[in-house]
Simulated assay, not measured.
Amino acid sequence: MTRSDPVIRVGRSLIQHGRYNNRIYLMKLDPGDTDRIIGWIRGTLEEEGYTKVFAKIPQSASPEFEREGFGVEAEIPGYFSDGDSCLFMGKYTDPSRREYHEEGVAATVRTALERADSGHHPLKEGYLIHEADASDAEALAGLYGTVFPSYPFPIDDPGFIRDSIQSGETRFFMMMHGETLLAAASAELDPDSGTVEMTDFATLPEARGLGAAGVLLGHMEVIVRDDGYHLAYTICRGEEPPVNILFARGGYRFAGTLPNNTRIGEGCESMNVWYRSLLTNPSSD
């Protein structure tokens, strides 16, 4: 079995679907495609029998999805350039996939919120942040393959990383000590909405404790804000305190939980959504 699911276009919209996550993920909806997408989802569910559909859509398109049996799981206000909110909506064909460890996720969120807005430490002397280009794809893929036993996208594949960089859709950033790559993260850009998904954070075990993720997050915020992006968000593991604390410390707000959304290892994990406006000062110490 592959370690990720393919991404396709349906009309002008973007969808990931497959057996690996046993789901359909509507990554980007062109509002003009709404009826076509809903029809495609119906047909694909009937044919493939996936247990979840996960849709990231403008709030203005939500009535059609609600009529199709979708419910809101998270919301980011002011996401789109016209001021519309972004809704993360879910539909389940297997009721058991809707059930998740709510107590564990809630405890993680509480722990993160105790550190809210406390900021991140600056980059330590002797370390540098370097924006990756296509020649760094092999090193990045090696880092991700070492840190993550599985991942929803094939970031352990140098070709995937190289294509992402060359397309301009994703900017990868690397924390270096001399010639050694210690940590990395990426900013996935959506010019249409002016938003950025902060994702793909990975730190080698020997570099933990250096505050690499916080440094990378703050650096990426400054870069993309200066390029005109107005909002950043993330979809992170719901019961992993460190990554939730990372975003809470950086001024991100909790938007909701996506039950049993993403395959990590041998099972599906629930994911938390956090967001922040980049029109305020970026996270700092």
Rank of each mutant, 00 (worst) to 15 (best):
I38F: 03
A207W: 08
E266K: 14
H177S: 13
G126K: 01
F70P: 00
R98V: 12
V215L: 02
A61K: 07
I41H: 01
Y25H: 14
Q59L: 12
S284N: 15
L258M: 09
E48I: 09
A183I: 06
Q16Y: 07
I223C: 14
R19E: 14
V10I: 15
N272M: 02
T34H: 04
D5A: 02
I76L: 00
D192N: 14
S96I: 09
P149Y: 04
F201P: 06
G194I: 03
Y252M: 06
A187H: 03
L204Y: 07
T195C: 12
L140Y: 08
A106Q: 12
E197Y: 05
A139P: 03
G256R: 00
T195D: 06
K124T: 10
L258V: 04
N244F: 01
D200L: 10
H120Q: 11
P154S: 11
G11L: 09
N261Q: 12
P6R: 05
G32H: 09
G104D: 13
R276Y: 01
Q59W: 10
F65C: 01
P241E: 10
F254M: 05
F160K: 02
F172D: 10
V224Q: 11
F173W: 10
K52I: 11
L26E: 01
A55V: 07
M220K: 13
G211H: 01
P158K: 01
A137P: 00
G159S: 13
T180S: 14
M174R: 04
L279Q: 15
C268S: 15
L14E: 15
G11C: 12
N272T: 08
E66V: 10
R9C: 13
A112K: 09
T146N: 11
R36P: 04
T280S: 15
I24Q: 00
D136F: 08
T280V: 15
V224K: 07
D35I: 06
I8E: 15
T44H: 06
